[in-house]
């Protein structure tokens, strides 16, 4: 009986730690969510009446991809 409680306690501890790690990582990574095409972004702005934060950048640095 005691060993079962121990196993359940360990399981809960591991589960809670993992959940906390996911939550912390999510918070760390939180950033602006973007529309990636002008057509879709403009449609959302017109429909909602909200102003548009517009950024454009080339997804390459000295023609090498993987870096803005």
């Amino acid at each position: 009986m005691k060993s079962r409680r121990f196993i359940i306690s360990v399981f809960l501890l591991v589960f809670c730690s993992a959940a906390a790690e996911v939550g912390a990582q999510r918070e760390l990574r939180r950033s602006i969510a973007w529309y990636g095409t002008w057509e879709s972004g403009l449609a959302a702005a017109k429909e909602s009446g909200r102003p548009i934060l517009l950024v454009s950048a080339a997804p390459h640095c000295h023609q090498v991809p993987g870096m803005w």
């Binding site: 529309y35 990636g36 095409t37 972004g41 934060l53 454009s56 950048a57």
Partner: peptide, 8 residues
């Protein structure tokens, strides 16, 4: 805002 990021 509606945030739009285009790829130039």
């Amino acid at each position: 805002f509606v945030c739009v990021r285009l790829a130039t």
